[in-house]
């Protein structure tokens, strides 16, 4: 097709293939690569398409679009890539330690819980403590206790939704690069929240900026206050939900660190469900405060 193109193309710059392949016949893989490159590259430039691109460039320049802030995906400088990796490593280590620490803390907490239904020996498994606790909270909001994975409708004031969005933003780029997982509910929600696939990046950039300017400790403090103010049983249910929310966010970070979007997305989902009784330190502390 290349040969035909050189006849009908706009400039006819394409050389005869032999001129390209000739000197590389005996160079092994390099020869094969040059062969494929020469055959697949489209060396005839369509002047009309080029003019459209340049016109778009001028329009964007005149509209001031070129002063937009760089996103992480726009940084292809070698130093930027290194920084990116170290941030990833830090985040994954942080997520792992939070998860493990939460599990350990939950184990201690459930063992020392004085008014459990079966006493201390009744629930040796930290993995089942949240479902076990659910029946005794029948008088409280049932949706909160039966949906520990934290759907955003469970509590409109719950800040974990924002953290979910943040984590999804972090993972979105990777998942989108994989091109397969975008149909999942979480991503659809993110896209609809942003108002369209094209707007996700800007939406996420705003989110990330907002998150870095208002650090998480304040959110944690708010959460503790909220827990202390509510009734004991209610705070237990809320804690279960928030623990799940945190775990889900951590899963998103861990996925980012692993750099494997597909497996990571699955892990994120599992993390949101499985370790429900692994609350972060703050919510468990809130429950402790409620006890006389």
């Amino acid at each position: 097709m290349g040969e035909r193109l050189s006849g009908g193309g706009t400039s006819g710059r394409r050389a005869h293939p032999d001129a390209v392949f000739g000197p590389r016949h005996t160079e092994g893989d390099a020869g094969l690569e040059a062969l494929i490159a020469a055959a697949v590259r489209q060396d005839v430039i369509d002047a009309e398409a080029e003019q459209r691109a340049v016109a778009a460039f001028c329009a964007a320049r005149d509209a001031g679009a070129h002063r937009a802030r760089s996103r992480r995906r726009d940084d292809w400088s070698p130093s930027g890539r290194r920084t990116r990796l170290s941030v990833r490593a830090t985040l994954s280590v942080l997520a792992a330690s939070l998860t493990l620490g939460g599990v350990a803390y939950a184990t201690i907490g459930s063992g020392a819980f004085p008014d459990g239904p079966d006493g201390r020996t009744g629930r040796p498994q930290p993995g089942t403590s949240a479902p076990d606790r659910a029946p005794e909270q029948a008088v409280t909001d049932p949706s909160a206790s039966t949906t520990p994975s934290g759907s955003p409708s469970a509590d409109p004031d719950r800040p974990a939704t924002a953290e979910d969005t943040e984590a999804h933003c972090t993972a979105y780029e990777q998942v989108r690069a994989q091109g397969r997982a975008l149909d999942a509910t979480a991503w659809r929600r993110l896209v609809s929240e942003a108002g369209g696939e094209d707007k996700v990046e800007d939406f996420c950039a705003r989110r990330t900026d907002a998150a870095t300017t208002s650090p998480r400790p304040s959110a944690g403090a708010d959460r503790s206050v909220g827990n202390a103010g509510s009734s004991q049983a209610g705070s237990g249910a809320a804690n279960a939900g928030e623990g799940a929310g945190n775990a889900e966010g951590g899963g998103g970070n861990a996925e980012e660190g692993a750099g494997n979007a597909n497996a990571g997305a699955d892990n994120g989902g599992d993390a949101g469900r499985a370790p429900t009784p692994a609350p972060s330190a703050a919510p468990t502390g809130g429950a402790g405060k409620n006890r006389p």
Partner: peptide, 24 residues
């Protein structure tokens, strides 16, 4: 063509050298 519209619009965001521009 679609890609170049986006490239033209977001060029100000790009950071890096020639090889990085290919990747971006």
């Amino acid at each position: 063509s679609d890609a170049w519209l986006e490239i033209a619009r977001d060029l100000g965001r790009f950071q890096g050298d020639g090889a990085g521009f290919r990747g971006w």
